[in-house]
Design a protein around this nucleic acid. Structure first.
Lengths: 251, 251
DNA sequence: TTGTTCGGTTCATTATTTACACCGATGTTT
DNA sequence: AAACATCGGTGTAAATAATGAACCGAACAA
């Protein structure tokens, strides 16, 4: 189908753990012919998006992504703004805090500050969060442009854990509840043993562009603890929205 | 020709200053048909590489680049390693220091620490440095895989300032000199009134993968000052090479 | 009104992508 | 050592996907 998108989807196979992938393996993972994958990789290498390890011949993300991130950050300094908010949030709640932004079909994790406790939730840098299976995703859907919800529900909702909502109606109900409450709660829908609470961050047009979230071990996610987290999380998200030049919706 | 590369080249029109570009303007800049540009942008938006400002309809770099940069940094923490080196370099030399890495055809600026002086060189974040027209580029070429030099000389060498070397032989001579000296010096070949000194940073195979550089106003670039800069720059680059797991060539 | 410009859509033509078979090299298993 | 896999990479003919001109409605200017 669309060659450009197919090529860029190759990048999704790189994760926190899998930092280098060989040609044949990438072809296998993507289901695309080796020759095609190689041409795509070479094209992306020309612009620095990926690079080849000269020794192992494996491919990895290139230095160009660092440059692009600097450019983006120079234009919209979200990282600079969100990091202090995350730090204070992690400190006051005693739990791991993270921020994510809408990026294509789903949410991109763009900042994490882990809790100081020894029993804490670890969140991988650069993780992609599915909209339907995370507190952040539900929070965003509850306040994003309405098209996003319909588009998301139209796609197949993959099960990540046993409690991941897969039914469109189920997701819709959670979104409605989040909208009513002003926050979303997720009980191990993305990662076992982890609960999440999330509040939307708004753009200049008062639609959600991302979320601020706190993740706690399920064993610690009692109702009072969640309530306590929210007393810190809600104002933090308001501050984040303000600091990035966003607009909190009036109703 | 190659659609993927053409699409990614669109990103090169985003700079420090030009952070948002409309469809028609981008088509004009790139010389590609509007319909094609739009399809490419939509494809890139699906993966979060770019995003559209819903109000102005203009396009800008997307949140996905932040995610990719985090992934790359988790795998190869060059930024974490280079930043302290740059900071000490800027302090000891009293001039702006920057680091760049090979990224596709040319060098990508991936770190800058400006001098504390009031008369200092400003380097735009995310700037792309042509290999033939900067001290960093010449330094890299002097120690990179030989193919890079031949490939670079084969391309047309654009003039950026009046003193930019455009003749392949001229560039080659500068590269040879840099190799002999261990550093490269550039007198206003990229930016008027700015001189640069650069030393290569090496990868695990003892080929250059980037450069560490110091930029000074031309008015201050006396021979003794350059010599003084080098006494700090050379060890700094060695430390940078060591810290990123690189190998300094033996001869 | 008339004329630009904008973002976006359509569709027939065509040029580009695609996938198969194949290559030499490296490494494993028998 | 022989046989077999697997690797990264290449060349090709076939077919699919990219292309660009014309066109649309909406803003805005003269």
């Amino acid at each position: 189908m669309r060659t450009v998108e197919k090529a860029l989807r190759l990048l999704d196979f790189f994760t926190d753990k899998v930092t280098e992938i060989g040609l044949s393996e990438l072809a296998r993972l993507s289901g695309i012919d080796k020759a095609t994958v190689l041409r795509m990789l070479n094209d992306m290498a020309e612009t620095g998006l990926v690079e080849q390890n000269p020794q192992s011949k494996g491919w990895r993300l290139g230095a160009g992504v660092l440059r692009l991130a600097r450019l983006r950050e120079a234009a919209l300094p979200y990282n600079r703004v969100l990091t202090p908010v995350l730090e204070s949030l992690a400190e006051t709640t005693g739990e791991t805090a993270h921020a994510s932004l809408l990026s294509g079909r789903d949410l991109a994790n763009v900042g994490v500050v882990e809790s100081a406790r020894s029993n804490r939730v670890h969140i991988e840098p650069g993780l992609t969060l599915p909209l339907h299976a995370t507190a952040s995703g539900i929070a965003v859907l509850s306040r994003a442009r309405p098209e996003l919800l319909t588009r998301t529900l139209a796609r197949k909702l993959g099960a990540i854990t046993a409690t991941t909502p897969q039914d469109a109606g189920d997701v819709q109900a959670r979104v409605a509840q989040a909208r009513a409450q002003g926050y979303a709660f997720a009980d191990q829908t993305f990662e076992a043993e982890v609960c999440g609470v999330a509040v939307p961050i708004f753009g200049p047009d008062a639609f959600a562009i991302g979320a601020l979230a706190v993740a706690a071990p399920a064993s610690r996610a009692s109702q009072p603890h969640i309530t306590d987290i929210l007393t810190h999380l809600v104002p933090a998200a308001q501050k984040a929205t303000r600091d990035i030049g966003g607009q909190i919706p009036t109703l």
